[in-house]
Structures are given as C-alpha cells and as structure tokens.
Design a protein around this nucleic acid. Structure first.
Lengths: 343, 343
DNA sequence: CTGTTAGCGCCTTCAA
DNA sequence: TTGAAGGCGCTAACAG
C-alpha cells in the first residue's frame, strides 16, 4: 500500500537504461558511456542524462553489467565460523584491504564442513565472483587447486603457490616454540600442553614447537603432561581437569589457543588454583577478549588482521594478473599477567 | 600455466548451455528444462545431457539465470560488526533459517557507519538480492522504509511494520528490569549501573528498566551511581574505575551489556575487589564467552540466534508475499556466579 | 515431450 | 561524439 513509487517510475520493475535514454533524448549507448565514465559524452547530453537518472531514480542493474562485462567486481570471502574472533579479525583485515580497489567482499560462512565449503565456493564461482578468499578452510589442497581453475583463490593457513592459487601460512611451530620458551625462561620446567584439534596441522606444528623448546633445555617430552583439546573452551576445561586429576605435577600450561586457555583458566578457578601464582598459563592467537580476562592472558599473537589484509591484496593481484609479492608477518609473544616466574 | 582445462573445455571462458545442448544433441531449451527440473525431459535426452554436463564440466551461470528470472535467490545480510558475537549469533540464526529455503545469504558488514550502510544496501539491491536483513543498523527508520520500496527488508532492534519492511525488537526495558530485580531480590539496595552508548535506544530502555525496578522497591534513582559506558570492555573498565573512585558505596553493578561487564570485572580485579563476595555484577546479552569468564557471568540472555532465525523467516515470508506471523522470544535471566546474596 | 524464438539490462564494437 | 545492432548465458512462452 505505502509503496508510493517515487516520481514516474513504472510500476513493473526497475528503471533501465532504455528508459533513461528515452527520457534524456539520447541513445542507450550514450547512457552506458556516461555510466562507465570512460568514453567522452558531450556536456549537454551529460546533463540531460543526469537529470533523467535523478528523475527516474535509476540504478544500474549490476547483474546485467556483470554478465556483460564478464566480471562482477566482487570477491567471495569464505569463513569457517562467523562467530570466532580468530576469523572475523581476518575478515576485517580483508575488508579494509579491499576498500578502494573496486572489489566488494561477499562473505559466506560454512562450519568446518568440507562438503558445504566446496559447495559454497562453487556457488560463489557460479555467481561469478572474480576471486575467492578462503580463511583456513577444511578442503584438501588438491581440491582447492581444482577450484582455482575457475577463479583465483587465496587461502590462509596453508602453503600454496600456483599462478591461480596462493596460500598464506604463519609459522605455527615457531609460535609454539615462543610460548614454551617464554615459560622456560621464567624458570618453569614442568610444562603441560593442551593440544588443539587432533587432525589439525596447526595443532601439530604448535606441539612441535613445544617439543623443540623443551629439547633445547634438555627436558624430556612427557606425554602425561600433554592432553588432547579441540581449540574450544570446553575442550580446554576438560583437558585441564584431566591434567589436574592426572597427579603429574606441573607449574605451567601452554594452551593451543586462547579459547582453550579460557576453558583451562576456568577449570583452575574452580579448583582454587591461582593463576599465575600457582600455575602459569599461556595461550595462542591473542583474541581481543584476552586483554580482558582476569587476569589478562599472556599469549602468542597471530596478526590476523594483517593476514586478512595481505590475503586480500594478494587476491586482487592474482585477479589482475600480477605476480604477488608477499612478506609474511611474524608471530610475537604478548606478555600479560597469566605467566609468572617460578618461585 | 598449470591451468590444465579439464577435458575439452574451450579455453575462452566457461561452458554454456549452448555447448551442452550441442554436445548432447538437444536444444538449449531442453537443457534448461533439465536444469530447472520443473518440466519433464525424456529419459534418453536426460542421460545425454547429464553426460554432456559431466564431460564439459558445465556449471550454470547464476548471474544470467538471475537476470532472466528477475530474482537471484539471495538475501543480503547486513551486519554492523563481524567481530561481535552479538551480531554473529544472529547471522548464524539467519543462516540456519535460510537453509533449505533456496535463498542464499550474502553477508556484508559495515561498521556503524550509516552512510556506508545505506551504500552497501543499495549495492546489494543493485545486485538484485531478493531481500535484505539488517542487523540493528544505524539508519533512521524513514530511510530504511525508502530502501524497502525496492526490496523487502527485515531489521532487528527496531519496531517497523509495513508490507515491505518489518522490525523485530526485544523488550530491553524488561531486560533492564530483570537484571536489577535480580540484584534487589538478592538483598542489594545500592545498585550501580554502567550505561551503554549514550545515543542508543537499547541503552535508554535498559536504564528505564533499572529505574522501574528501583522504584518498585521504593529506592531513589541516584545518578551518582550511574556511569556512562559505551557497550565496550574499555568503557566498562573506565566506568567502573570512576565508580570506585566516586566514593559512593554500592554492593552491586548492572552493566549495560556483557562486554561492559568484562571490563568492569577487570577493573574490580585490579583493585582487589572480589566478585561476587564484595560486589555483585550482572551483564546483558549472554555472549558465548560469558560461560567461561572467572567467575562465569550472571546476565540477561538475549536469544540472538532465535532472533536471527525469526528475522530470516519473516524475510522469506515477505519476499514470497505472505503476511508474516511473529512471536517474539523473550529475555531471560541467566544466573551464574557473579551475583550473590548481600551478606 | 521438444525446438524456436524472444528477450532480461547492459556494454561494446562498428560506422557514421 | 553518437546511434544501431549484436550479444553475455539463461529462461519462458509458443508452437509443434
């Protein structure tokens, strides 16, 4: 009822270039030239067209334009979990890098479901996105490479280097080393570890770094101090309980990520174990929330925003046929208040 | 280089229905019928087409289909901040409701920037999304209504009721009342409040609920116990510091949202004030993280996932020309461990 | 059941 | 500088 069409817009659908052309007394070609801005249009016609556009409230149909041009000026951003700061920071970075490039991000989220992921990427491609940014993703490299035949793909969290597909992966082993080394430097010698998802390369790399640091100090790898987690708070809580019940003493814990650390921290709180007085705790990721936990969490910072920026930049370069040049940012230790010197 | 086109795909671009038709020895119309599945196709031709599609690795161009059909089977989801669980929970809900409807969500995020928001919505419309879901948003109702002339819009966090635009708004006043009432029931009489963003209706409504509960107990509204926050952790931390420095005693604090409560909790921790032994603390939202704070946060639950589901359902109904029927979920108190009886 | 034929709205030669 | 004309890839009548 209150769909009062502004001015003389035809009730049917939306205004087209044909109507603008008619109203302005020019040909559609001229309208199109005006819109693209590339080719010259005489002053008089320009004004007439501008007036017609304003009067008819014309908005170009981007679908038609994309179909014709063969490119949509969009890129698909595939995230695993819109709900995890880890991913959303990356999305933010990607958005900021895309700003001003003319490419518009279209975000889609799947939930660690490889089938769904492949499906979504295919649909994005079918919608003619000019590129796809995959945040981590659960697809095997081979499949990603195959999808990249249709459209350039940049993926975070993996190594990949082909003309149409790039991977951006941080050195997780080094991160695990950094975390463990920090605890060692504080004097800790009984350092437990709560691992991430069993099948995750990140999880394995972080353990490897943990082991390297231990070895460096001539300490044995004691598997009774290594518990399986799954990168979630609940996993951290459960693992910490097992650690506490295991009867093998430890003075510090390296959690595979911040969320795991949050859960572990709660388990400790419930048992009345003080952090960092009784046990030191370090995470991995540096989620925004880690600044505000009590006490604020010491952790290894992953520059996800920067990764997102970088990934988007590389993607645009791939799309435009340039060879990307990439300098990967590093991981760094962020010392806050959950770790302390062993008394 | 390694773009080894699978099978005999023409190097130029992607495979079209015409090529499939030729390869299968049928007309394009038949291919189209096969694709839509609506009209019947003979067994023999079906098989031929299937073979051709597989052999050529044909994928329909959704852009062309949308252009022709006049609808894209997509809906735009506009979120303010991909980084806030408050929004992402809603996105998750919307996604789950869209599953199986045939509509695909295209997520776009703006950052509390009304101009950018209007712009993004317009671009979404130009891409011919069939509907738009605005999560909260910072646009005035009037402008949203104007945009709704082009496409059905559902918005959360506001009241709206027109044939093309619906708003879904929870009763924040009631939530504020619930929170405060809980503290009162525990025996607290000196209850501070850290407000949300000054210009936010939500913030005002929550304060109103706070006042109503106070009045109900014959307690005066003491503005010295009400501090300005901004819905962020930092805001909460700062406000709590001011409260602590103000010299007006209080035994409980109602924070305008969970993030504010996190900040406030840290401020308390820094001063050595115990929660809940010395001061009770209650939040608003029930973010996923609130389960794992130390101690776990008592709060008022906003069923954001449900809201997202509902909003998406309403949007689909609007798109399909049905009159939506809506039963808004309510807010509820979630008692955890940051509130305690006044000793 | 199937093929022919117009377009959807826009852009881009090609001539003028 | 401008207009006419032919598609981009797909679908939806309309005749068979």
């Amino acid at each position: 009822m209150n769909t009062k069409a502004p001015r003389s817009r035809p009730a049917s659908g939306s205004v087209t270039t044909v109507e603008v052309a008619r109203a302005a007394g020019v040909s559609v070609a001229t309208v199109s030239r005006f819109l693209s801005g590339a080719n010259p249009v005489s002053e008089a016609k320009r004004e007439a067209i501008e007036a017609a556009i304003a009067q008819l409230d014309f908005k170009p149909n981007l679908l038609a334009r994309s179909l014709k041009r063969g490119r949509s000026m969009t890129v698909g951003v595939l995230t695993q979990d819109v709900n995890s700061p880890f991913f959303t920071e990356t999305v933010l970075g990607a958005e900021s890098a895309l700003e001003g490039t003319g490419y518009e991000p279209l975000i889609a989220s799947v939930h660690w479901n490889p089938k769904q992921e492949a499906d979504r990427i295919r649909r994005l491609i079918a919608r003619k996105v000019d590129g796809v940014l995959v945040l981590v993703g659960s697809l095997p490299d081979a499949q990603l490479l195959r999808l990249a035949e249709d459209v350039p793909i940049v993926a975070t969290g993996r190594h990949l280097r082909s003309p149409r597909a790039w991977g951006l992966r941080l050195d997780n082993e080094q991160g695990g080393y950094l975390a463990t080394r920090h605890l060692l430097d504080l004097g800790h010698r009984q350092i437990a570890h709560i691992q991430g998802q069993a099948d995750s390369v990140d999880a394995r790399d972080r353990v490897a770094g943990y082991r390297r640091a231990l070895e460096e100090f001539g300490l044995p790898y004691d598997k009774r101090l290594v518990m399986q987690g799954n990168f979630s708070e609940t996993g951290g809580l459960l693992a910490m309980n097992r650690l506490l019940d295991g009867g093998h003493s430890f003075t510090a814990v390296f959690a595979a990520n911040d969320q795991t650390a949050y859960g572990a921290r709660l388990a400790l709180y419930r048992r009345g174990v003080r952090v960092p007085e009784d046990v030191s705790l370090i995470g991995f990721d540096d989620l925004p929330a880690s600044v505000f936990t009590t006490p604020p969490l010491t952790t290894v910072r992953q520059p996800m925003f920067d990764i997102g920026r970088l990934a988007a930049r590389v993607l645009v370069q791939l799309i435009e046929g340039q060879r990307p040049e990439v300098e990967l940012p590093g991981l760094s230790l962020v010392v806050r208040e959950t770790t302390g010197r062993l008394r």
